[in-house]
Amino acid sequence: MITSINKRSYPNTLIVILGQDHGKSEYVEKGDITQVIDEQGNVTGYNFFNVDKVIDYAKLPDGQVKLTDAELAALNQKLTEAGFDTELAYGKPTLVYGLVKTCDKHPDSDHLHVTTIEVGDGEEHQIVCGAPNIAQGQKVVVALPGTLMPNGQQIWPGDLRGVDSYGMICSARELGLEHAEQKRGIMVVPDDFTIGAAFDPEVCDELLASGKIKL
């Protein structure tokens, strides 16, 4: 689940994204809530209007927001009162450290690689990567499906030149780190970072600034 705010374009509105849209969307409006449904009948999100009546909107920053348990409960109560049966819940972190277990050349590209990335608890994802410095054995930062990147890009499953890809291996620049170098390449983190742990931007930026991690 992605929750975000854009105070300039959509004032006093909380946008909740539950999944990737497939085809044309339909909308169900009940009071201050609009439910978004794709053409396959899946509920892909909600828009909460006049959300300052439910949570403390003024204190929330632009961009992706992490709601407290109390704020999440208040939104779920509002959904129930409006007659919707969805219950919102945060899952595991989607921006995590991963291990590059395999790295092979893409069958239809001279610069892409097809990787297998372990992201914790034995979970693995196939991710197509175009970074020139990707290699087996690295620990990297992985944006899994359902991630909202700092630049507003949403990460969902897709395919690159006919090969399925379930996430993105990130560069420091894509992660919005202050000390990111302005050149191509994924960020390689230290070997002692825990696979599956949530990405910590402050720690990684400090290591970038000190030269202890690359890109």
Rank of each mutant, 00 (worst) to 15 (best):
2 I>E: 10
4 S>I: 01
8 R>S: 11
14 L>H: 11
15 I>P: 00
16 V>W: 03
16 V>R: 12
21 D>G: 10
25 S>R: 14
28 V>I: 14
28 V>K: 12
32 D>M: 09
37 I>Y: 02
39 E>V: 11
48 F>G: 11
52 D>S: 15
55 I>C: 04
59 K>F: 04
68 T>Y: 06
75 L>K: 00
78 K>G: 04
79 L>S: 02
80 T>E: 13
82 A>G: 08
88 L>H: 10
88 L>S: 12
92 K>H: 04
97 Y>K: 12
99 L>V: 06
99 L>A: 09
101 K>S: 08
112 L>C: 09
114 V>N: 06
115 T>P: 06
116 T>Y: 03
117 I>W: 00
121 D>F: 00
122 G>W: 04
123 E>D: 04
133 N>G: 11
134 I>R: 05
139 K>Q: 11
139 K>R: 15
143 A>N: 08
144 L>V: 03
144 L>T: 03
145 P>Q: 09
147 T>V: 02
161 R>Y: 07
169 I>N: 07
170 C>A: 14
175 L>R: 09
176 G>V: 03
177 L>F: 05
181 E>A: 12
181 E>L: 14
182 Q>F: 10
183 K>T: 12
185 G>E: 05
187 M>E: 07
188 V>G: 05
191 D>P: 05
193 F>E: 01
193 F>N: 01
200 D>R: 05
200 D>C: 05
202 E>K: 15
204 C>I: 08
207 L>H: 05
207 L>G: 03
214 K>E: 04
